[in-house]
């Protein structure tokens, strides 16, 4: 193998993001570097970019997230049916209007990320990026409100281990276990989703996410909608028990 071939083959197997970009760009020529070393390429090669595969992969991952949170909803269902009155009492510690505001914020952000896909499909990169930034701003807003909500609970000693918590009846304690676990896990997903979108913004700016090739943006949107979906169920179950 010549030195040049060795280098190119090595680059194909290289892990870094920089080479991923290079690979994406050279693939436009329907010739990937491996092919330069042998005469034959399979039409159904696993190394070609496939938007449909990409989308299917994302949806499959979303199903795992649905079942992950689904498990928690099952636990919620059992304990609420066992302690309906205490769940109601405990829910009075939450501010319905803060929750409603957060719901509106997330719904808005779902719209903006969906619109950013439309924008990119129509070739309007600038608008697409702006809409993505709005989505991220909404995510931040959500997290800030969450921060204040949790803070208020800590102030009232409502976290496991704190004084007031130990005095609560069983059902109320179970409510708060689920509240912190589920909104905490959800908040983590908000952060991950926002970071994902930041990466997409860089992709659009760099030219690796284009009107012809926007799977990354679409997938980040799908993930974001999932985050919204989970909140759509969390909100009534914790804030609107009455």
């Amino acid at each position: 193998m010549t030195i040049r071939m060795q280098k190119e083959v090595k680059e194909m197997e290289d892990w870094s993001v920089g080479v991923m970009v290079k690979k994406q760009n050279t693939e436009h020529q329907t010739l990937n570097i491996k092919n330069m070393n042998h005469a034959f390429t399979l039409p159904n090669s696993g190394h070609n970019f496939d938007a449909k595969a990409s989308k299917m992969g994302m949806w499959l991952f979303l199903y795992t997230e649905l079942l992950l949170f689904g498990g928690l909803f099952l636990v919620y269902m059992v304990y609420r049916s066992m302690y309906p009155d205490e769940f109601l009492l405990a829910s009075f510690n939450l501010d319905v209007w803060m929750g409603t505001l957060n719901t509106v914020i997330l719904l808005t952000s779902s719209m903006t990320i969906a619109m950013s896909i439309t924008a990119l499909q129509k070739g309007n990169k600038k608008l697409s990026i702006q809409l993505m930034w709005i989505t991220i701003a909404a995510a931040l807003g959500f997290l800030i409100i969450k921060y204040f909500e949790w803070g208020a609970k800590f102030e009232h000693g409502l976290f496991p281990g704190m004084d007031h918590f130990g005095t609560l009846p069983t059902g109320e304690r179970l409510y708060f276990y689920l509240y912190f676990f589920m909104t905490g896990l959800h908040g983590l997903h908000v952060i991950i989703g926002a970071i994902f979108i930041v990466f997409v913004i860089f992709g659009v700016k760099k030219g690796t996410v284009t009107p012809e090739r926007y799977s990354l943006l679409e997938n980040s949107g799908l993930y974001w909608h999932l985050v919204d979906l989970i909140w759509i169920y969390l909100f009534p179950l914790f804030y609107l028990i009455h």
Binding site: Y63, T64, E65, L67, L68, F69, G70, G71, L72
Partner: peptide, 9 residues
């Protein structure tokens, strides 16, 4: 795909 997340949580 579908069963593992349940034990995960």
């Amino acid at each position: 795909l579908l069963a593992t997340p349940v034990i995960g949580i």
